[in-house]
């Protein structure tokens, strides 16, 4: 199955890389954030019409500000707002900024803590 490789990327390059993917005929299909006790990263997945797919992996920390790619792919707005609300990663230049009201969870940034964090 394609798309099991995760290419590292930094916050500074992400917009440029996305534009490159857009030029190559890829489209954004998902962004998600993962937080484990050891690490935290965001994965961007791009897909082509022939179903091949590529992943970018970017290390972040809670409270970091990352440039938004919603200028390239509008659909990114939803994913980025989701990550902002659940993980507390900020995005600059969002096409539509819900300002933390996208998911109205009772605990703010509910996913920013892992089960292991709570035990400590």
């Amino acid at each position: 199955m394609t798309g099991q490789t995760f290419k590292p990327v930094t916050a500074a390059e992400i917009v440029e890389k996305t534009k490159q993917y857009a030029k190559d005929g890829y489209r954004l299909i998902q962004i998600h954030c993962t937080k484990t006790p050891q690490e935290m990263f965001i994965i961007y997945t791009f897909e082509k019409i022939d179903l091949s797919c590529e992943n970018l992996k970017m290390d972040v920390q809670v409270g970091d500000t990352v440039p938004s790619i919603s200028g390239v792919f509008f659909g990114a707005v939803l994913y980025e707002n989701e990550i902002h609300d659940l993980y507390g990663v900020n995005f600059s230049d969002l096409a539509v900024d819900f300002k933390g009201t996208f998911y109205e969870t009772s605990v703010k940034q509910a996913f920013a803590q892992t089960g292991a964090d709570n035990k400590e």
Binding site: D85, E104, T105, A110
Partner: peptide, 8 residues
């Protein structure tokens, strides 16, 4: 706006 039934 969504998030009315977010279950985690």
């Amino acid at each position: 706006s969504i998030g009315f039934v977010h279950r985690g």
